[in-house]
Design a protein around this nucleic acid. Sequence first.
RNA 1: GCCGGCGUAGCUUAGCGGUGGAGCACCCGGCUGUUAACCGGGCGGUCGCCGGUUCGAAUCCGGCCGCCGGCGCCA
Length: 429
Amino acid sequence: MEYCKISEALRKKEGEEVKIRGWIYRKRSSGKIAFIVVRDSTGIIQTIVEKKNVSSEEFKNARKALIESSVEIEGTIHEDERAPGGREIHVKKFNVVGFAKEFPITEYQSVEFLLDNRHLWLRSRKLTEVMKLKAKVLRLIRQWFDENDFYEVTPSVITTNAAEGGATAFEFDYFGQKAYLSQTAQMYLEALIFSLERVWSLTPSFRAEKSRTRKHLTEYWHLEAEEAWVDNEGNMKIQEELISHVCQNVVKIARSELEFLGRDIESLKQIEPPFKRIKYKDAIKKLQEKGFDIKWGDDFGAPHERALVEGEEKPIFITHFPVEAKAFYMKIAPDGKTVECADMLAPEGYGELIGGSERSEDIDSMIARLRQQGAKIENYEWYFDLRRYGSVPHSGFGLGLERLIMWLAKLDHIRDATPFPRMLRRAYP
RNA sequence: GCCGGCGUAGCUUAGCGGUGGAGCACCCGGCUGUUAACCGGGCGGUCGCCGGUUCGAAUCCGGCCGCCGGCGCCA
């Protein structure tokens, strides 16, 4: 007999024989009977080991095996209202593959202890559901790009460009020269559009900011796209279609995960283009009306972002930030004061999901802005070459994958959107 | 970087100047179609580290280390 998954076993009929394998999730036992709940990647099922139905060796092991021991079980399916899930297995063969030591994670635990034991905590229902959700979201993202003429590309994560604007990079020794862990693949993607036209990539990005918030990781998965012949408005269309595709379909293929995590399905279903577009200057006005002490030129903090999406059910775009507030590579708008950019803010205060812009083709303006930041111009010569050899209007954007997962899964901290979170004070395990 | 909080048994914690107690987990025994099972017993602590005050410090004071939350920076 082949092993079947627990989710399959739960669909079998009364009296059917099954073989399952997995890990002990919960157990209760006495001198004559043991109730052993087993989990695998698909679910949990209760199994009943009765002394009279198995060898004395097997019964002894069933009583002895602690939570998280790995087991192989053979038995008969029985419908029973008392069992979680309505079905259970009456055990005929009970084999312990690996006895577990006393599992450190029990009922109530501190955040610190759970993070120290992250490698074990990953077995929890919650993190399992988040990881499944993340895999399915990635499947949908890939699907959307495939269907919309994008090529997936694999840019490098090691770079000698100290990279964009204000962000701080992790520096390391690269055979005697200074190198950095990439903060964005953007410039590499820009190089690739001249052959592939529409490209996207998923890479780790690193930020050495000493941020202490529930929205920041030092290492995160960065989803970036770059499109030839696309302006800022076209860029926003691509973004809202991508996000809508994910929302519309994730409720179909990850319904149980979302429900377990407490995400309201209906709120995701209604997310479809177009998303509201608000100009920076109007956002400032709106914030002033709400009583914030903010003026033209200021960047938005967390409270501002929360206020701007208040009452919004879909993500919104904030466009046309002041030139000074944004990176050197963004195209300057006709007004000369703002750039052709858009930040997508998630509803419910989950913050910036996407940052995107139309890219500048004016080498002089980019050099002037780089100088202002004190950057080394010679590092960017290759980048300027892209403008010298058949430049085209183009745009692109970057999405923090864990931010998206955090919003979709209604997580209260971004660390749970990734299996081994890297943060200011944590790189272990 | 700034502000605030917390470090006592494997875990969650009470004690806040006079020889450290409980719940969970684990072990032993009993018992049960159990559901966070239950009942009885047992094991388990350099009270984060260093120094000071005191007859006496988990408790008061100083320094250090670790972690958490918020703000800032940033995606």
